[in-house]
């Protein structure tokens, strides 16, 4: 196969991966970072880096591209927390007007979603990163416990426990009337 053909082949796979997983990945980043713009940026960067990986390892058929995407995204989110943790939260306060102003014109829906998302983000913000991560993968990305365990390199048991603890903490924060 000529090099050009190989590249086309990779490009095709890459775009297929994008079409299939971009939304879920974006959602995951949003869940973790509580910032729509940032989530978009990280999503794009994740795909860019995934592309770099794919063309530097052309002979590797990337079996589980989803796992690769999440692994890359996860690392970037960790970096994000390390360097921008405080900054993220202050930006939230400021960008409340801008953050949920969706360009597709669904104003009322956007406002309702915005309020509920705010509440969700507030609840999530206080959780430890590990808990937030597993909750995101489980409930936002609909991953099975087994998949999550594989992705994070932990046993299923550890993941189960982490999920339950995360839910318990959330319940505490949601208050006694819920």
């Amino acid at each position: 196969m000529s090099k050009r053909t190989t590249t086309n082949h990779i490009e095709r796979d890459f775009l297929a991966a994008y079409d299939a997983h971009a939304d879920a990945l974006f959602r995951h980043c949003l869940f973790r970072l509580s910032d729509r713009e940032r989530a978009k940026e990280l999503t794009q960067e994740t795909f860019t880096r995934t592309w770099e990986y794919m063309i530097t390892h052309p002979d590797e058929a990337v079996e589980n591209i989803r796992a690769l995407l999440y692994r890359i995204a996860r690392n970037m989110i960790i970096d994000e927390y390390r360097s921008h943790k405080r900054y993220n939260q202050s930006l939230d306060a400021l960008s409340e007007d801008e953050g949920f102003d969706l360009p597709d014109g669904d104003a009322h829906g956007a406002i309702v979603r915005g309020a509920e998302m705010s509440r969700l983000f507030t609840l999530m913000d206080d959780l430890p990163n590990a808990a937030r991560e597993v909750l995101a993968l489980r409930y936002s990305d609909d991953m099975a416990v087994k998949e999550i365990a594989e992705l994070l390199g932990e046993t299923e048991n550890v993941i189960s426990v982490r999920i339950h603890r995360g839910l318990a903490q959330l319940k505490k924060r949601m208050g006694p009337h819920t």
Partner: peptide, 20 residues
Amino acid sequence: TNQEHIFDQIKNERLTVVEK
């Protein structure tokens, strides 16, 4: 549970067609 219900909200979040 109730806690799990609040995640329903985030499932509806996605990139808009234009953004994607």
